[in-house]
Design a protein around this nucleic acid. Structure first.
Length: 108
DNA sequence: AAAATGACTATAT
DNA sequence: TATATAGCCATTT
């Protein structure tokens, strides 16, 4: 699980469902979020590269404010994030080795 | 064991 | 294009 998140390339994004699918748990997007929630702030995994399917940072009162921290981290990665946590998922979405390298540089 | 909850996602308005 | 509603599935009470 965290391993899947850990292998997200630098400067690239991935959705919860994507991670879930990657670990062989399709439809378990919520569990991914659950796992990241219990993750400590100084975590060794790039949890900030994980966003929801709408390409936005999933904010919640449970996160106290770590969501905004995520925004900062993403900005540090070189990903432009709007004040609302909206980011160009279409451009930065990580493609875990889809078909051939015909993805026009859309992969890592 | 049943019911409630949540860093989600996909449809329907 | 943007809210509202309904599925989903593991964890928690």
């Amino acid at each position: 699980m965290l391993a899947a998140v850990a292998l997200i390339p630098h400067g690239r994004l991935a959705t919860y469902g994507q991670i879930a699918e990657l670990i062989g748990a399709y439809g378990c997007a919520r569990q991914v979020g659950w796992a990241l929630r219990r993750l400590p702030l100084p975590s060794p995994v790039p949890w900030h590269r994980v966003v929801n399917a709408r390409g936005r940072i999933s904010m919640s009162p449970s996160r106290e404010g770590s969501d905004w921290m995520q925004r900062q981290l993403l900005l540090a990665e070189g990903i432009p994030v709007s004040g609302d946590g909206q980011l160009p998922l279409r451009r930065y979405l990580w493609v875990p080795r889809v078909l051939p390298a015909c993805a026009m540089g859309a992969d890592d």
